[in-house]
Design a protein around this nucleic acid. Structure first.
Length: 204
DNA sequence: AAACGATTCAACCGCTACTAA
DNA sequence: CTTAGTAGCGGTTGAATCGTT
């Protein structure tokens, strides 16, 4: 048993769309509109799943879409709205004419998250990391803090091992010792992991 | 110049919400 | 009210591209 597939996967093309396919889809929609996505590929002469056609249209082919860089104003809007509604990408995109939920999501995940972290702001809660650490220290009892610290250190160890293997910086450590400030980045990671652990605990 | 890792973003997957019968 | 079909959403993946060594 299982879920009924939305289309016959064997007869369906996947992956990147060609300009020819784009043309077929665009001209079909221009003539007939976007009612019943299941029938659109068949009627438009496309070997694609209806879902794939809908996605291609809504995220790329729609004539009212913007394709360029996000402006500062748009970024500010995303950050502001995200602090209120969280990962409700379609809700956020609805406030940005010409942008899709996929655009907003991608931009958040690749740029804005890092930007906020770099400013010392947690991209999930939109609070400064220092506040979060203070919250953890004041709201939890010492055994919980100890447990959290242990979990966080475990994550930190994994992260560090990965880093050491990747960058081969263990050699540099041996050669020069740990320079002041070297641990800043991993400590930031530690804070992120600690927060993640708290979130998981709360959701359970 | 080549190899490798990091980044970006289009596309896919699986789930939920909605709607019509 | 129930059920089946469809649309929409958010998370994830992977190919293409870029940057670094």
């Amino acid at each position: 048993m299982g879920r009924i597939p939305c289309c016959e996967k064997d007869n369906v093309k996947r992956g990147q769309w060609t300009p020819e396919e784009d043309n077929k889809l665009s001209s079909y929609i221009a003539q007939h509109g976007t009612r019943n996505w299941r029938l659109i590929p068949k009627n438009a002469g496309l070997q694609r799943c209806g879902k794939s056609c809908r996605l291609r249209w809504t995220n790329y082919l729609r004539p009212d879409l913007k394709h360029g860089q996000f402006s500062d104003t748009e970024e500010q809007t995303i950050v502001k709205l995200h602090s209120v509604v969280g990962n409700r990408w379609s809700l956020i995109a609805a406030q940005l004419p010409g942008r899709t939920d996929n655009d907003v999501k991608n931009h958040w995940n690749t740029k804005l998250k890092k930007k906020l972290s770099g400013m010392g702001i947690d991209p999930v809660t939109h609070k400064p990391f220092s506040h979060l650490m203070a919250e953890i220290a004041t709201t939890l009892a010492p055994p919980q803090v100890a447990h959290l610290a242990e979990a966080a250190l475990g994550c930190f160890k994994d992260e560090m091992l990965h880093l050491l293997t990747k960058k081969r910086i263990d050699f540099q450590f041996q050669q020069s010792g740990i320079a002041p400030g070297t641990l800043q980045q991993p400590l930031t990671l530690q804070v992120i992991k600690t927060k993640r652990t708290i979130r998981l605990r709360r959701s359970n």
